[in-house]
Amino acid sequence: MSVRKTPAGEKWRLLEVERPEDPYYNLAIEEAVARTVGEGIAPTTLRFWRNDNAIVIGAFQCVSLEIKLEECVRYGVKVVRRFTGGGAVYHDIRNLNYAISFRRPSPIPGDDILNGYRMVGEAVIAGLEKLGVKAEFIPVNDIQVGGRKISGMAGTLTKNFLFIHGCLLVGSNIEILSRVLNVPKEKLEAKGVGSVRARVTTLRDELNREITMDEVKTALLRGFEEVFDVELIPGELTSWEERIAEELYRNKYMTIVWNLGPCRGCPDRDRDALILGRVGLAGGD
């Protein structure tokens, strides 16, 4: 088991690069940064970013089964598949995404992704505590307040990098979330709730006031610095990352074949390809 303890005061990069109106480019940046950190070209990086009105589906999910595509068209919700597993999530401009890329061996014990969710979860929880919100980590990958989900994480472990990202419901429109996601009743029953709405909460609801993104980011930043004992220094994308992101954007994230996913035998595939085309995706099957 290889473990790299973070030297006290090590400096990591903080990125706040985002294109909220273009979720496909945001996801391309996610993967470009993870790859670049994995290659040792960039330091461990924490990124904060937002999408404005998009569903981000897990790498192994089926668009037809998990999303109500016609509702997405009605509400102008874009649909993009990410490169990590996990479930489908709805992002709006009041949802904050955090993403951390580690080169291996990472400071996560055992380079184990479950430990990664726990440790990154601790950092987020430490940040939320600074805002006056008491949260807890719920395995496999959730953060809850009072039994309701406020953040979920996903991630992956490759030969070169361990990558964890998550989304925090700051003041999100949960009504749209419950209309566009198709959560299996088995999952709701297992959680003991009758609807998506009953299962989630937001920072705004917990604090009973509006909160700015800057307040949230500052608190989370302190949480990560505290848990990992590092200093986060604001930085920019390298030219390498910009090039990789551009390639991933054009050849992967903007294509229908990527965003539709693995269900090649699905009878709804052609119909769903047409719908995704209507929201601006390119490419064929």
Binding site: F60, A154, L157, P262, R264, C266
Partner: peptide, 20 residues
């Protein structure tokens, strides 16, 4: 045709998408 999908995690992604 057979396709396994879900909200699990794993690698390599290309192989996980071919389980079916």
């Amino acid at each position: 045709h057979a396709t396994f999908t879900g909200d699990f995690f794993g690698e390599p992604a290309e192989e996980l998408n071919k389980i079916g």
